[in-house]
C-alpha cells in the first residue's frame, strides 16, 4: 500500500470474498492480498498489547500462517478482518503471557475485566466459553453503538483510553466512566444469565 502511494497510484484492495477464494484455491497470493488489505490493522492490534514492533510483526506473520491452515475448512467470506483479527489477537495474548516484560498491558486489561468475571469454575470447558462469548455478544448488541464501540476498542482491540477518546472525540474521563458503567452492566447481565459472580 505504501509503495502504491509512493509511486503515485492507488492499488484497489481485493474483495474479501476473492481473497477467501484464493485461500481455498491454496494460492499464496491470498496472503499477500490479506497483508495489503489488513496488514497494518493487524499489526496495530498486536502492537497495542505487546508494545514491540518486531514482536507485532511476528504475530502478524504467524496470523497469516494460522489463517492459511484454518481456511479451509473455515470460509470467512463476510468477516475476513474479524477472522484475522481474532487470530492475531489470540497469538498476541499468548505471546504476551509467555513474555513477562510485555505482560503489563495484559495485566491491566485482565484486572479491569475481573470486575465482571463469573465465579471460578463456571466456564472450564470450551463450550461454556462459547456460551459466555455469545452472552457478551447479546449484551453488546443491546448497547448503543458508541458504548459498544468504546467497549470493543478497549477490550478487543486493546486501544488505550486516550486513543479511544481521540477516536470518538470525547474526553478520557468520559471513556473511563463509560467503561466502568459497562463493566458493571455486564456483570449484572451475566448474573441474570446464570453466571455466578
Amino acid at each position: 500500500m505504501v509503495k502504491a502511494f509512493i509511486s503515485g497510484r492507488k492499488v484497489r484492495n481485493m474483495d474479501d470474498n476473492r481473497i477467501v477464494e484464493l485461500y481455498l484455491a491454496r494460492d499464496e497470493a491470498a496472503i499477500a492480498e490479506t497483508r495489503r488489505k489488513y496488514g497494518s490493522k493487524l499489526r496495530k492490534i498486536s502492537y497495542a498489547l505487546i508494545r514491540d514492533h518486531a514482536y507485532a510483526e511476528e504475530c502478524e506473520y504467524e496470523a497469516y500462517y494460522e489463517a492459511w491452515k484454518l481456511i479451509p475448512p473455515n470460509e470467512p467470506r463476510e468477516y475476513l478482518f474479524a477472522f484475522m483479527a481474532r487470530i492475531v489477537r489470540h497469538i498476541s495474548i499468548d505471546r504476551c503471557r509467555k513474555n513477562s516484560k510485555t505482560a503489563a498491558a495484559l495485566c491491566e486489561l485482565t484486572e479491569e475485566m475481573a470486575q465482571c468475571l463469573p465465579s471460578p469454575g463456571s466456564a472450564e470447558d470450551g463450550a461454556a466459553e462459547g456460551e459466555l462469548a455469545a452472552s457478551i455478544s447479546v449484551f453488546l448488541s443491546a448497547c448503543t453503538k458508541e458504548k459498544r464501540g468504546i467497549f470493543l476498542r478497549r477490550y478487543w482491540f486493546f486501544d488505550s483510553v486516550p486513543q479511544i477518546a481521540a477516536r470518538y472525540g470525547i474526553t478520557k474521563s468520559k471513556v473511563k466512566t463509560t467503561l466502568f458503567r459497562m463493566r458493571n452492566d455486564l456483570k449484572e447481565f451475566l448474573r441474570k444469565e446464570g453466571y455466578s459472580i
Partner: peptide
C-alpha cells in the same frame, strides 16, 4: 474461570460487531 480467560472468551464475539467497531 480464571481472570485472563475472559479476554479469550471475548474472541468469540459476533464478527459483525468487530467489523462495525473497526
Amino acid at each position: 474461570m480464571r481472570k485472563n480467560e475472559l479476554l479469550n472468551a471475548m474472541e468469540g464475539i459476533v464478527p459483525e460487531l468487530i467489523t462495525e467497531a473497526e
